[in-house]
Design a protein around this nucleic acid. Sequence first.
DNA 1: TGTATTTATATAAGTGCTTATATAATAAAT
DNA 2: ATTTATTATATAAGCACTTATATAAATACA
Lengths: 320, 320
Amino acid sequence: MEFIKQLGEVAFGTRLRLLTDRFIQDGAKIYQSQNIDFEPRWFTMFYLLSQKSPLNITEITAELGYTQPAVTQIANILLKRGLIKIVKDKTDTRKKLLALSPKGLELYKDLEPVWQGFEDAVKELFNSVGHDVMYIVSKLETALDEKDMYHRVSEKIKQKQIDNVEIVKYSAEHKDSFRNLNYEWLEKYFKVEPEDKKLLGDPEGEIISKGGDVIFAKYNEEIVGTAALIKSGEAEYELAKMAVTDKAKGKQIGKRLAEEIIALAGKKNAKTLYLETSIKLGPAMNLYKKLGFVQTEYKGPAKYTRSTIRMEMNISKSKI
Amino acid sequence: MEFIKQLGEVAFGTRLRLLTDRFIQDGAKIYQSQNIDFEPRWFTMFYLLSQKSPLNITEITAELGYTQPAVTQIANILLKRGLIKIVKDKTDTRKKLLALSPKGLELYKDLEPVWQGFEDAVKELFNSVGHDVMYIVSKLETALDEKDMYHRVSEKIKQKQIDNVEIVKYSAEHKDSFRNLNYEWLEKYFKVEPEDKKLLGDPEGEIISKGGDVIFAKYNEEIVGTAALIKSGEAEYELAKMAVTDKAKGKQIGKRLAEEIIALAGKKNAKTLYLETSIKLGPAMNLYKKLGFVQTEYKGPAKYTRSTIRMEMNISKSKI
DNA sequence: TGTATTTATATAAGTGCTTATATAATAAAT
DNA sequence: ATTTATTATATAAGCACTTATATAAATACA
């Protein structure tokens, strides 16, 4: 048990399970020592029926947080023991209305002081702990009702992944990644055109030496995305060749790359940054819009046959 | 679930179980969504072996709070999946030393960010609750280590039973109880002597009208004990005919009756109160000693053949 | 008014533990 | 050195749930 304690929050579920077992198991021993033929797992149902009856299986299921087969099973045990009885529902013959039997009511008298003792003991325990444990448990329940552990953990993992994405400058060793990442999506959605071949085959000669730049996104020591800034005029640049590999989707890598390209354009004193894209690439267009690009008319012929939309942003305005 | 919440402390075990389930079940969903072939219940063992290995089944059992068969079962699953491997122990061939396999170590890399995410999420959850839940859980564990629920509840139930014992004055309707309760123990340990027959047959004539008194202990509307104060001299009384039925043992009824008799003797301005008992009745003698009786010489012949000890107390001293 | 859908319960099979007990190796005792 | 006790693990059976599915009655719908 020492190891579990050391683990802290990661093993909270395990620890909670062990604590629960201590409560439930001791419950059985208490009934035994009081010579009462009763089991802890019958408690909720038996007590419910003592307070409110008759109730059918479905109603009991709703109140107790067990599944319906579990309720049916416990009900059958209590029936066999003669502690509850069936009251037939006149209007709906499917319903199995349950209530305490005379024998059950008799047992109830013996059970009450035990439950009272349990309640007193738990209260004393909480008192000695010095915190309102019941209240804390309800707060935990409410918090989990609002957002369950699955969503909480998923968010944390995703955030961590996003934080782990690193944007790196162009270096010769990543030249192939620039080509491959772009070929991947071009071949999937469109086709590789002569202009693509030229740029992707020689980024140093065709982009960087002409005043542009190429950047990469690195995740777990692997290049998973890329984008290029291409000089197209005096103070005009193009955001192009942005590609993120499928298996790294969902880490906001496209956004990070685009933001970095915008920043680079700013550093190069660009006035306008434009891009060509296709109406077919919905998510990409949404991203561009969010970043401040607006759709514009084509000034000349499109560079690629796939281009259907031209977008542009004013750099001097968006960057300080 | 609403009903369980209303119940408060009585249903704390149930509520804890439901909370535990939420943690464990969401755990499974998280591994699934991250495409990791791993189950929550493997966690503690797998993690333990990642930190400390090789370990044998017994060592793992000691650390995890599971039973040995459970550890064996989980180990077999992990072995079948190739996530752990057996390292033979040279000195003791019974021992099955376990350690992560290369495949396990590989998986560990994928698992770590998930666990980190879980830990972060739990910490955030506790933060939102505004209490150091981990600390409260350890305090609960420590408190239960010191005294488990079984003992806590047993004590509460016993105290409640003691509180429910009521001492009542003599009334004619309880005359038979006086006789029966005394016959019960006399016949069990000794035999009914002529003096017993006289007193038990006519308490009103033989005890009360002669300046003495008879009292009863009532539990759940039933007479379960009795005792008599018998006048034996000017300011001298005898505590006698104390009897508690077997099924009501352990509720400190003897003590309550004796205390009441001492108080009655005080009211009657007794100077000394004595009693005759037998060395065979150990628990009774301990009680008398605790109440302030001290062993004395017989002043005359013993009243009963069973009497082997005479005890006495000075009333004026012990009562104000 | 039949037919599809929904609701209420039952049943089957599986899971993840438990307790009880078996088996085999080692250590202790005579 | 042999018997006896202890320790380490395995196996069997059971328990208290679960999920998945079947069955039958009631309701909705067209």
